[in-house]
Write a protein that binds this DNA or RNA. Structure first.
Length: 322
DNA sequence: AAAGTCCACAACCGCGGTTGT
DNA sequence: TACAACCGCGGTTGTGGACTT
C-alpha cells in the first residue's frame, strides 16, 4: 500500500494508519529479505505495491523497492569506495550537484543512496572542517585543484605499485583474479554478478545464486541485516586499484555519452599535477588547519592529506610568495 | 568497565513526475 | 481532461557499532 492522496501530508498519514495498521517498518529481517528475493526471482520486479501484497510482506511497496534496489539486488556492489570511485563522485558531483541517481549510473553496482551517504558523511564533513559551504566556490575549487589531482596521483602510484607486484607475483595475481578476490564485500545472498578485475567492473549477464536452496529457505549463512553493513566502510582502501588508463574506460562506457562533456571538466584536468593550480582566494590557513581531518588522516580521503601533503602545500605557498 | 559521543548507513518521508482509467 | 495510483528521487532521521573519556 503506497501513498494515497499525494500532495498532502495528513491524508497520506491517515491512509497509512487506517489501511495499514499491521504494516511493518524499520530494519528488515532475514525472513523478509528471503521472501522478497524469492518472489522477485520467480515473478520479477516492478509493480511494487502489488508485489508487496502478493509476496505476503507486511511492507509498503516503496519499502520493498528500496530494500531490493539498495540492498538485495544481485548486482549491488558493497564495500569500499575505491579511489577511482571517489574521483568519479567528486567529478560528477561538481557537474551535476546532488543528482545522486544520475551519478550512480556511472558507478556500476553503487546505489544513489550509497553515494549520497558517502557524500554526506565524508565530503560534507570536510567542508564543515574547512568552515565553508560544500557548494561554495571555495570548496569546489579545493576539490578540483587539490583533492582530485591528489586522488589521481594516488591512483597512479597505486597502479605503479600494482604493476610491479604483478610482474613479480603474476601467479598469485592470476589466482586471486580467478577466484574473484577483492576487498569488497558482497550481497550476502548472492554471488555478486559484478567482478572487479584490475579495477575494471565487469557485469555478468545473470545473477548467480549463492545459496542453491532459496525455495526451501535453507539458509545456513549467519546473517543479520544489522551485521550485513559492517565492514562496508570506505575508510580503508586496500589493493583495489587500477591503472589510470583504465579509469578513462569508466568515462568511455558511460550510459549516455551526452552527459560527458570533456570541454567542461575533463579527466585530464584531474591528472594534472596540482602544482600551480591553486584557485584564487582559497584560504590555505583553513586547509592547513591542524584540526582539519583531511590533514590529520583517518579515512582515505583524509589520508590524502598527510605530512607529505602539508610540506608540499607549504612549499607551494612559499614559492608563490617569492 | 561504564558512560558518553561520534559516525556510517539503512530506512523512511515528502514531493514531483508518469501512467492508467 | 481529471483523477487516482504508482514510481523514483532527494532530503532527513533513527539506530547500532566504534571510539573516546
Amino acid at each position: 500500500m503506497d501513498v494515497k492522496g499525494r500532495g498532502s501530508a495528513s491524508p497520506t498519514l491517515q491512509a497509512d494508519v487506517v489501511d495499514d495498521l499491521d504494516l511493518r517498518r524499520g530494519p528488515w529481517t532475514v525472513d523478509e529479505d528471503l521472501t522478497l528475493i524469492n518472489y522477485i526471482t520467480t515473478h520479477g520486479e516492478g509493480r511494487w505495491n502489488s508485489l508487496a501484497r502478493s509476496a505476503g510482506l507486511k511492507r509498503t511497496g516503496k519499502s520493498c523497492r528500496l530494500r531490493w534496489l539498495n540492498y538485495l539486488r544481485p548486482d549491488v556492489r558493497r564495500g569500499n569506495i575505491t579511489l577511482e570511485e571517489q574521483l568519479l563522485i567528486l567529478e560528477l558531483h561538481s557537474r551535476w550537484g546532488n543528482r545522486w541517481s544520475k551519478i550512480a549510473q556511472f558507478l556500476p553496482g553503487r546505489t544513489d543512496n550509497e553515494i549520497k551517504n558517502y557524500w554526506r558523511t565524508r565530503v560534507q564533513k570536510h567542508a564543515k572542517q574547512l568552515k565553508c559551504d560544500v557548494n561554495s566556490k571555495q570548496f569546489k575549487d579545493t576539490m578540483r585543484y587539490l583533492w582530485m589531482p591528489r586522488l589521481v596521483e594516488r591512483i597512479q602510484a597505486a597502479a605503479a605499485t600494482a604493476a610491479t607486484a604483478t610482474t613479480t607475483a603474476s601467479s598469485q595475481t592470476l589466482s586471486a583474479a580467478t577466484t574473484g578476490t577483492t576487498n569488497s564485500t558482497y550481497n550476502p545472498y548472492y554471488n555478486n554478478n559484478m567482478e572487479v578485475e584490475n579495477g575494471n567492473m565487469l557485469m555478468n549477464p545473470a545473477p548467480i545464486m549463492n545459496n542453491n536452496d532459496f525455495g526451501g529457505s535453507q539458509v545456513t549463512q549467519s546473517y543479520t541485516p544489522e551485521n550485513s553493513s559492517t565492514g562496508a566502510s570506505s575508510d580503508s582502501f586496500g589493493t583495489q586499484v587500477s591503472p589510470v588508463s583504465e579509469l578513462t574506460d569508466i568515462y568511455s562506457t558511460v550510459p549516455n555519452q551526452d552527459y560527458y562533456q570533456p570541454s567542461q571538466i575533463s579527466y585530464s584536468d584531474c591528472i594534472t599535477s596540482p602544482s600551480g593550480l591553486y584557485p584564487q582566494g582559497l584560504d590555505y590557513t583553513q586547509v592547513m588547519e591542524p584540526s582539519n581531518p583531511w590533514i590529520q588522516g583517518g579515512d582515505t580521503l583524509d589520508n590524502l592529506w598527510n605530512v607529505e601533503n602539508m610540506m608540499f602545500l607549504q612549499q607551494q605557498l612559499n614559492s608563490d610568495s617569492m
